[in-house]
Design a protein around this nucleic acid. Structure first.
Lengths: 337, 337
DNA sequence: TTGTAAGCGTTATCAC
DNA sequence: GTGATAACGCTTACAA
């Protein structure tokens, strides 16, 4: 009287292999105290039936599921996708799955939306991408909801168990020092948006390098954008159209660097002969625009893998790598003076 | 003796509102045969407790879950992300969630991976993005696994219940006719990779326009790429370095168009004065390179929303919109001859 | 080493 | 209209 509706269950396996469901369960969960012969017998039946445990039933019995969430609101598609791939590196072959949740960080319902999402799906844990990750109130919300989380960011936003971070400040400092070593003295900055930790960290890196070299960092040396192409172009116009002369500009991300490139070109400047440009992110755009953009690459995929591991193994979360180093990527958008 | 571990359950609601759990269940599921007073009483308790039904328990009892899958292997990050957002448009506010699965279509384990993914997660349905969506054997696999699916593609790959499609052929024909109207006569084609339906559809559109205008479509007029920047550049080199002269080139996607642009520039050609270029996709790259790329935009987000709706409401899947029209986006990479 | 019974939180069946 | 009761597929006591 087996009602063969769809997939085989643990009962089918138990019946066919002549053991109890509990024994099958032990085989599935690799319990150490199991007769080898029994195990092999059961495994043979499992293979024959192509039995796969029902994750919903497991989730119910274990009072936890196998869903990792990823919350983002990001203008940088490549970064988000790289992150997704990194998470898959970590959960591939396991029973975990990745649930994504794009949100609008400017929505007044942001917190309510996220709360509903977490309460409804009862995720095992969530990963939060910048710039949302920089919001401490959001992290507090996850704690309140009893949902484990890992933040990805450009600074030490949280403790090691809840963070994967890059060293943006040092990375930008290195990049600007590279420009200085090439003879540049008037190096402009296109800042990221106000309130973004990544933006302030990158600005700090620029200041570090400039100040250490005794170069000017006054207000005429910088302009603000918000990580979009248009604002990068506008910031470029602002800098290049003022009284201050520039031989190089560091833009706080690649997209804005592309905007600066447009601004330069529309003013008749040639890059890199008349103006050197450096970006940040090493997104697809960097290698695709002309000239190819000198930039800074951060190991997003590795960071994502690590973030997922922290969630999957909370007991070892603090031991999992948290700080990830960036890599300077020299291309053709920089020339020496 | 309520063991208050975490979230409230249906039992808590039943006890506090003095009804059976079945009645609570009826309230949750909006059963029509319910005393209005009872409903209000229960709803008050639900609100007070902030009770949210456990999706894993529901999934177990209903023998179906509320997870929509999305399988992709795509070089185009923006498209994938737009699609994710479109799916969210459809499932936002509902109990459904989106599970993503990037895969490597060149992996020998592709089918096994996907099979394991489907069997393990028991998804409610999956959406397949191009180019994977063009693989009929894969669609057959989903049918075999009893998993509903919707394919996204550039041609009529399946019936309306399992497809959202764009009209690439007509779109390219329109774009090439635009070039012809601008006085172009030698219009090259950078094809997409062999075996891709989108590639053959776009090629057909180019042939349609050229043939209708009595223009040449011989082998010297085209070169093949595989949708990457490098292959686009190589194809551009091949076309521009041959005996045949070109005043315009249509590349089968934006990234390859960017490659052609590089190739043109490295040969000392100015775009669009010496060479007009048209792409396809309207990805971020299109607006970001210089000059901004004339291209074709397809309404990915709308397609994604429709795909998700087809899965959520299988009974009405064939009525949900299936064919989506593209939009020609004129920018600065085209000049008249 | 293995089995039995109870329970995870929900819905379906079928009475009342 | 509403409520016992038995599923759903699995795991954790607790025995044996």
């Amino acid at each position: 009287m087996a009602k063969r509706t769809g997939q085989p269950t643990i009962n089918d396996v138990a019946r066919l292999s002549g053991v109890s469901k509990k024994t099958v369960s032990r085989v599935i969960n690799r319990s150490p105290l199991l007769n080898e012969a029994t195990r092999e017998k059961v495994e043979a039946v499992i293979a024959e039936l192509a039995y796969v445990p029902n994750p919903q039933a497991r989730a119910l019995a274990l009072r936890r599921n196998f869903l990792l969430g990823m919350i983002y609101d990001n203008p940088n598609a490549q970064m988000v996708l790289n992150f997704q791939e990194g998470v898959l590196d970590a959960i591939g072959g396991s029973e975990f799955a990745l649930v994504v949740r794009p949100v609008d960080r400017h929505s007044p319902d942001l917190f309510d939306d996220i709360r509903a999402f977490i309460e409804q799906q009862r995720l095992y844990g969530v990963m939060i991408l910048p710039p949302l990750s920089e919001n401490d109130a959001l992290a507090a919300l996850f704690t309140e909801l009893g949902c484990n989380y890992v933040r990805m960011g450009s600074a030490t936003l949280d403790d090691d168990a809840h963070l994967v971070q890059s060293n943006d400040r040092q990375a930008v400092r290195d990049a600007v020092e590279h420009l200085i070593a090439q003879g540049h003295r008037q190096i402009g900055l296109v800042q990221g948006p106000e309130g973004f930790r990544s933006a302030s960290e990158r600005e700090a890196g620029w200041r570090d390098a400039m100040t250490a070299a005794g170069l000017p960092t006054g207000p005429e040396m910088l302009a603000r954008g918000n990580y979009t192409f248009e604002t990068g172009r506008d910031a470029g116009e602002q800098l290049l159209g003022g009284a201050q002369k520039f031989t190089a500009i560091f833009a706080s991300n690649d997209v804005m660097a592309a905007g600066v490139l447009h601004a330069a070109r529309s003013r008749g400047l040639t890059v890199p002969q008349d103006l050197s440009i450096v970006g940040f992110d090493d997104t697809a755009i960097a290698a695709t625009i002309w000239p190819p953009l000198t930039t800074v690459r951060w190991p997003i995929r590795d960071m994502a893998r690590s973030a997922a591991m922290k969630l999957i193994h909370p007991e070892a979360a603090a031991d999992e790598k948290s700080l990830f180093l960036t890599e300077f990527v020299p291309r053709a958008s920089v020339a020496s003076v």
